[in-house]
Amino acid sequence: MSVNHFTPTTGLIGGSLIGLSAATLLLFNGDILGASGLMSSFVVTPKKTLTDPSQHWKLAFLAAFCLTSINLNALKDESQGGYYPGLPIVTPLGFIVGGFLVGFGTKLGNGCTTGHGICGLARRSPRSLAAVLTFMSTGILAATSCSTTCPMYPYFRDSSTQRPAVVVGGVGTAIAQLASVLALSGLIRWTPKIQDIQKSKKVIPAMASAALFSLGLKVSGMTVSSKIYGFLNVKGMRDGSWDPTLACVMGGGLLVSFLSYQWVKGFNIVKNSKALECPITQKSSGHFNVPSNKVIDAKLLIGEAMFGLGWGIAGLCPGPAMFLACHGYRDVLFRWWPSFFIGTLIAEHVTFNGTITRWLNLNAASRM
Rank of each mutant, 00 (worst) to 15 (best):
P8T: 01
I13A: 13
G19Q: 04
F28L: 08
F28A: 04
L33G: 05
V44R: 00
T45D: 03
L59M: 13
A60Q: 05
F61P: 02
F65R: 00
L67A: 07
N73A: 09
D77H: 07
D77S: 15
Y83N: 12
P85H: 09
G86S: 06
G86I: 08
L87Q: 15
T91A: 10
F95C: 02
G99V: 08
G99W: 04
L101P: 04
K107F: 05
N110D: 14
G117T: 12
R124C: 09
P126S: 05
R127N: 07
L129V: 07
F135G: 04
S137M: 12
G139P: 07
T144S: 12
P151A: 13
S159Q: 09
S160N: 15
P164A: 10
P164G: 02
A165N: 09
V171W: 13
G172N: 10
T173H: 08
S180H: 04
S180A: 15
V181A: 09
L182D: 01
L187D: 00
R189N: 05
W190N: 14
S200Y: 15
K201A: 10
K201V: 01
K202D: 13
L212Y: 03
L212M: 10
T223L: 00
S226P: 00
K227L: 08
I228F: 12
I228E: 05
G230I: 12
F231Y: 06
V234W: 10
R238I: 15
T245S: 15
M250E: 10
G251I: 02
L255D: 05
F258W: 15
V264S: 11
K265Q: 14
K265A: 14
G266M: 11
F267L: 04
K271R: 11
N272Y: 07
E277M: 08
S284R: 02
F288N: 03
V290M: 07
S292F: 02
N293D: 15
I296C: 07
G312A: 13
A314Q: 00
A314S: 14
G315R: 05
G319P: 07
P320N: 11
M322Q: 10
M322D: 10
H327Y: 02
G328A: 03
D331T: 09
L333T: 08
F334C: 06
P338V: 02
F341R: 05
L345Y: 03
A347R: 01
A364D: 13
A365V: 12
